[in-house]
């Protein structure tokens, strides 16, 4: 019997089917079926995976959102749900991004370079809120969920501490 998982990465949805037959496991992605084998490498989340014979190393960590996966040197923050949980969330009105933004915090000490939103503005997930400079780099702080800007607690050219609240949402 094929079991279906729903995954989300970077605002995109994916479906992966898993099927176990005896000692063999196969997965289906985009209609393509492949045999897989997963072997745990140590007590932590390191695994070796064989995908139709192709060998990869990966690490899986439980994260706030779901799973944090490292593969081929890249990092992926994934939401992983079984069919039932996924349908239940859809039925309860939770859309693709159930998360509602409450506040945006500084990921590290730095300097606010530019504020890109105004009080009262409704933001979408992934929308730029402000630009911050830290360790000589500029980075855009983005909205993680939807929300309406309630208060902007910082000004341009203001230095901020790590974890300081920058913007609050209604």
């Amino acid at each position: 019997m094929v079991k279906v998982y729903h995954l989300e990465f970077g605002g995109q949805s994916y479906e992966v089917g898993v099927e176990k037959a005896g000692s063999k496991t196969s997965v289906t992605v985009d209609g393509k079926k492949r045999f897989v084998d997963l072997a745990r490498l140590n007590g932590s989340g390191a695994f070796s995976i064989l995908l139709d014979g192709r060998s990869f190393d990966l690490e899986v960590k439980e994260s706030e959102k779901g799973l944090l996966v490292f593969a081929l040197g890249q990092q992926f923050d994934l939401i992983v749900e079984e069919e039932r949980a996924y349908r239940a969330r859809l039925a309860s009105g939770g859309g693709k991004t159930a998360a509602r933004e409450k506040e945006a915090r500084a990921p590290m000490p730095g300097l606010i370079v530019k504020i890109e939103v105004a009080v009262g503005q409704v933001v979408e997930p992934g929308q730029g809120l402000l630009i911050m400079e830290a360790m000589k780099m500029e980075n855009e702080i983005k909205a993680k969920g939807t929300g309406k800007v309630k208060e902007i607690k910082v000004a341009e050219r203001q230095p901020v501490e790590q974890n300081q609240v920058l913007i609050t949402f209604e």
């Binding site: 995954l7 992605v29 897989v36 997963l38 745990r40 899986v60 593969a71 040197g73």
Partner: peptide, 19 residues
């Protein structure tokens, strides 16, 4: 276009859940 790791990550995370 260098998200070659994504497919491996998707499959790996599903297998991890199963495990």
């Amino acid at each position: 276009g260098s998200e070659a790791g994504l497919e491996v990550a998707l499959i790996g995370s599903v297998l991890y859940k199963e495990l």
